[in-house]
Design a protein around this nucleic acid. Structure first.
Length: 525
RNA sequence: GGCCCUAUAGCUCAACGGAUAGAGCGCGCGCCUUCUAAGCGUGACAUCCAGGUUCGAUUCCUGGUGGGGCCA
């Protein structure tokens, strides 16, 4: 923030990396340009007078009105030391948020589809980053184990079970055709011959849920809670939510149904929605309202859901519902990610779960590898419409940028093994750390200092993408350093130790960053 | 028909309204007797179209056109 003469209040100063054509500077800000109008002065003059009043680091004003800053070697060395002293604390924010983050929540009527890899990566990495920033984050997976879909699924499993026993049975209209239905039916015990469709539904859902849990674990994604819709029904959660809305005067009866008053002109939605149908059955919407109320009852101050773009039309009514429940704006938000278009070479892969033609998350992870998958999906912002060629992902996994980053970690580890062998290990003194002034060394030191800002950007965008970009850039700078600056020199132990310290900082931060993405940092490759 | 997202290099994607738009893959040419060549250097290749706001627009606004999705 800058307090300047003639301005009413301090104004924010945005620091950016200095541009490539000014290698003699580290940081840059266009602040004088933005202040020209309010101060009614020429931007360059503002920059020049600001530079005059500043002390400490090196400052310079350049046309048309930038202030450039060069950091001292001592300051960069100090930052490196703080990183090495406590890597897990480095770049930590103030925290303060209390968030319930819900994601994936795939239907328990089938396996987890590969398209869920995106939400899983996004949600899990984001949770790790937000926690790292000091916030309280509770992750949750909602299981729709009640309702019509489960009924249809139960009928489908029962039909497969009966067919296997040689009976004449058919999958109902709109039923589930996938081969996994047969497999589930085959696992049913003999006494299942007396089960009704509901019992088969329950059995199938349990089987699928177990496999969802295994898939998520296999993908490195953890949830603090798997919340079953049926729990909500048992606890009379829907009645409670309905009562609360009634007490607040937010519902009314019309045509034999119960409606939510979404606030008319003030609402986000374009019309009111039904909560209880005229036949007495509750809608999914009411169940979702009750579920979100339940999350808030359990203490979360903020609810963040991650949804596929196919659900975006649901957002306005959910926002209205949270408002109707009496919570302030911003209590609920959804991260909408665009859908993944799956390709096999040139061919578009259909994504119908009912038809049974699809690729599972597990299949992809097993073939392309966990690290490559996690990094690949984290690289894409939620809004990007992405094409995903399954064949390419499997075949060319070695060309995934994740290996470029991991290789840095392996290289550093290798240097440390060698250093130990040669007896060159040891703590570097401040004087030799301040000698890390080679361009490749400075660039690395500076990049390390941007970590905190990167995590802040991830929080602001609610996306891990900035972290992948950061890690790729850090890796590139390290590989350059590796070529230009030989680390181990038996004739110059001070320099060796200083460079080893820099390597240690890079290794720590690569491990931290990859860890936040759920990606491993191998010691050898 | 209404709404949401989107258009950047041959491909897949980055880029708080700031200086010369970045990576990876692919393509051309170089570099392993020294800590890992899954690397480095170097070359070619990009902001859909038309307006507007701004000192400054890939970024914001309007209208087109193309793509993905939701609803009716």
């Amino acid at each position: 923030w800058a307090k300047s003469e003639g301005a009413d209040s301090p104004t924010p100063v945005l620091l950016k990396p200095a541009p490539g054509n000014l290698p003699e500077f580290d940081l840059s800000t266009p602040w004088p340009l933005s202040m020209a109008k309010p101060l009614k002065r020429k931007p360059l003059e503002i920059a020049q007078s600001a530079v005059k009043s500043l002390e400490g680091e090196q400052f310079s004003a350049t046309p048309p009105g930038f202030i450039n800053i060069k950091l001292s070697p001592a300051a960069l060395a100090e930052n490196l030391k703080s990183l090495i002293a406590s890597p897990h604390q480095y770049g930590k924010g103030d925290g303060g948020r209390d968030i319930n983050l819900e994601f994936v929540s795939a239907n328990p009527t089938g396996p987890v589809h590969v398209a869920s890899a995106r939400a899983a990566t996004l949600g899990d990495s984001l949770a790790r980053i937000l926690r790292r920033r000091g916030h309280k984050v509770h992750t949750e997976y909602y299981v729709n184990d009640a309702g019509r879909q489960v009924e249809t699924f139960g009928l489908s499993v029962k039909a497969r079970f009966d067919q296997a026993r040689g009976e004449d049975a058919e999958i109902p209209e709109g039923g589930y055709q996938g081969s996994y239905v047969k497999e589930i039916a085959a696992e049913a015990p003999p006494e299942a011959k007396d089960w009704d469709a509901a019992a088969f539904g329950k059995f199938g859902v349990e089987k699928n849920l177990a496999s969802h849990k295994a898939d998520m674990e296999n993908f490195g994604v953890t949830f603090d809670r798997w919340f079953l819709e049926s729990e909500l029904h048992e606890a009379k959660g829907l009645d409670a939510a309905l009562e609360k809305l009634k007490g607040l005067g937010k519902i009314y009866e019309k045509d034999g149904a119960t409606w939510l008053d979404t606030g008319g002109e003030d609402g986000e939605d374009d019309k009111d929605r039904v909560l209880i149908r005229n036949d007495g059955r509750p809608t999914y919407f009411l169940a979702d309202i009750a579920y979100h109320q339940d999350k808030l009852n359990r203490g979360a101050k903020e609810l963040i859901d991650i949804w596929g773009a196919d659900h975006h039309g649901y957002l306005p009514r959910m926002k209205d519902a949270i408002a109707a429940l009496g919570y302030p704006k911003g209590t609920f938000q959804a991260i909408i990610h665009q859908l993944v278009k799956l390709l096999r070479g040139q061919e578009v892969v259909k994504m119908s779960k009912r038809a049974g033609e699809f690729v599972t998350l597990r299949e992809l992870v097993n073939e392309a590898g966990l690290d490559a998958c996690r990094y690949f999906f984290a690289m894409r912002t939620a809004n990007a419409h992405m094409n995903f060629d399954i064949e390419l992902a499997k075949k060319q996994s070695n060309e995934n940028p994740v290996f470029y980053v991991q290789y840095v970690h392996a290289r550093v580890c290798s240097i440390f093994r060698e250093a130990k062998e040669r007896g060159l290990e040891g703590e570097a003194d401040d004087a030799s750390l301040a000698e890390l002034t080679h361009p490749a060394e400075r660039a690395l030191l500076l990049k390390l200092a941007w970590f905190s800002d990167t995590l802040r950007a991830c929080e602001k965008e609610l996306s891990p993408t900035a972290l992948t970009t950061y890690l790729s850039e850090l890796a590139g700078l390290y590989h350059k350093f590796y070529e230009d600056c030989h680390v181990l020199d038996k004739d110059d132990s001070a320099k060796s130790k200083a460079r080893l310290t820099l390597c240690a900082g890079v290794r720590a931060l690569i491990a931290e960053g990859l860890g936040l993405l759920g990606v491993s940092a191998p010691e050898r490759m």
